[in-house]
Amino acid sequence: MISGRAHALRITVWLVVASEGLLFAGLFALYAGYRAEYPRGFAEGVGLAVGWLGGTNTLVLLTSSFAMAAAIQAGPRAARRWLVGVLGLGGVFLGLKGAEWAIHIGDGLVPGAHYAGPHTPGTALFVTLYYAMTGLHALHLVAGLAMVAWARRREDPAVTECVGIYWHFVDLVWVVLWPLFYLLS
């Protein structure tokens, strides 16, 4: 009975992750289409990124994914300690992301009428996509943190495993976002 419940939970979370993946896929396609139309503007947009914050956040999130995978393999008591690590690293990611947004907002890189960045065609669009896609990712991360906190309280291996699948998905999305907004100049 318990394994049947675990199986149902696992399939449910995979279906959720697959549909969430398609949400991001639409945004990636949008990015690709506009990047093809405005290659110079997008390259200039990538040049505006705070590279060390994006790189550090990548390492932080990969480490949190490892901690989550370790929590799933560990027993319930050890899993609680690993999950504290996941919560801490998730918090660090959000803190750095907030600092990065504050820097951009201070530089006038905001979407809409108050945009004060470079006027190369496409750069303002890049900035809008940057906030939309990294913001949506951050929202998923906040939801993931809530789930991790819940899994830590439940001490149920099936719940921890399902929350882990979701957490890895959030990491996966960032792995693709990082080159698009920080590396491909």
């Binding site: 992750v17 697959a18 882990g164």
Partner: peptide, 26 residues
């Protein structure tokens, strides 16, 4: 990440099909 951390390589066929369909649609 998908193969090792999410353990899709050893998962039940249903999640693998869901992931494959999502990948194909992407």
């Amino acid at each position: 990440i998908v193969a090792v951390f999410m353990d899709l390589a050893r998962a039940h066929p249903v999640p693998r099909i869901a992931a494959l369909v999502a990948l194909l649609l992407f």
